[in-house]
Amino acid sequence: METFESLVRTEFAPKNTFLNTASSGLLPARTVAALQEAAALRADGSPLDSLFADVEAARASFARLAGVPVGRVAAGSSVSAYTGLVAASLPAGAEVLTAEDDFASVVNPFHVRTDLKVRAVPLERIAESVRPGTALVAVSAAQSADGRIADLAALREAAREHGARTYVDFSQAAGWLPMEAGADDYTSSVCYKWLLGPHGAGFLVVPEDFGGLTPILAGWVAGEHPWDSCYGPVAELAHSARRFDLPPALFSYAGLRRSLELIEELGVDAVHAHDLALADRFRAGLTGLGHEALPAPGSAIVSVPGLGHLQPELGKAGIQVSNRAGNLRASFHLYNTPADVDRLLDVLSA
């Protein structure tokens, strides 16, 4: 039986010290092979039925990771599209509560609708800031800039107390942070970060009754019988969340299916423990160097104020990190090791 470490070693062989999953995760070897096979189908004129089957397999895998029935999961490509769908469902004058400086894809579609009241508060105060008249709370489960984790349990309780819905983006959390998507009204996630998939795939989770959403983006793939829905208005929308599907990037889903299989094989709990151990090792090492990371307890993302300017220098040394708002952002995932952490600390200490 393969161990966590041996399974990871068979899938990844980075040529540098890659600590930038919060920007884009590495592709497993099985995913690369699946992408090559998908491209070969297009090249030799073979039927593409297997690629559509990959979409459904990936949807089912994500549903298991999210802890919801597969009928609640819509397949698409971007968080911003699904945020826009949620924004379009709100009546004029509705109040949307967001976290200050959250990722644009989570908040901008609400601002584009100039007839909504969008209110931003510090992440730590978002639960206590839900009030009578708040229609929706939209927030990232983990903040892109600094890794802070939202207190989703408190937020859900406050939303229920005031009759508000919740919309949570798991793009910086799905794959390393256990999900309870069924506890929220709507959740979304792209899959090219911690879920290790190619760009161009994402999911939306909706309530069983669709939560008041109108499938304004629906095309033929949103039909109950897609191949009978190619021409004219769609006669019968899918009875499941598939009515919110967007035309799938077939190659992306062919690869994503294999990436999600790997996450399931390893187990999110094991990935979570592995990632946090590395992040905590880095935080402790920073303290020894006289630096303090921004507070983000329990996060696999670590941001260090004032060191963002070192990103180009670190890149030349073969260490991939990000510069976010002047902060050095390192993100630790399943393919990273203690040696990766120590190498970054060594370069920072020079």
Rank of each mutant, 00 (worst) to 15 (best):
Y231W: 09
G202I: 02
A39L: 09
T114F: 10
A296F: 11
V302L: 02
A104E: 13
D102T: 14
R258Q: 15
A34C: 12
N108F: 14
A174K: 10
D49R: 12
V347P: 02
L256G: 01
V321M: 03
E236Q: 14
A94R: 06
S259P: 08
G232Q: 01
E236W: 09
R119F: 09
A145L: 08
L123A: 00
G223M: 06
G76A: 00
D340T: 06
L314F: 14
L310Y: 03
S171E: 12
D342Y: 03
D115T: 15
A235F: 05
H309E: 07
Y335K: 02
V118I: 13
W176H: 13
V86R: 04
R119H: 11
L266D: 00
G255Q: 08
E37H: 10
I263L: 13
A222M: 03
F244S: 03
A154M: 11
D102M: 09
E128W: 08
E261L: 04
V302C: 04
S50T: 14
S105L: 12
G288H: 08
V107A: 15
G255M: 12
L310N: 01
L155W: 03
A53G: 01
Y186D: 04
S331Q: 04
R283Y: 04
S50A: 14
A159M: 05
L345T: 10
S171D: 15
P247I: 02
G290E: 03
D185L: 00
P305I: 07
T3H: 07
W176Y: 15
G147I: 08
A270L: 07
F12W: 13
D280M: 05
A60M: 04
N336R: 06
R72L: 07
E180I: 00
T31G: 04
S78G: 04
T10C: 08
V79P: 01
A60Y: 12
S61W: 01
D228N: 10
G197Q: 03
R64K: 06
L116I: 10
D245E: 10
A38M: 05
A145G: 07
P215L: 03
P109N: 13
G298M: 08
A39C: 03
R258E: 15
S50P: 01
S46G: 02
L155D: 01
H309W: 10
Y186M: 04
V86E: 02
A153Y: 05
A142Y: 09
E5W: 04
E265M: 09
L328M: 01
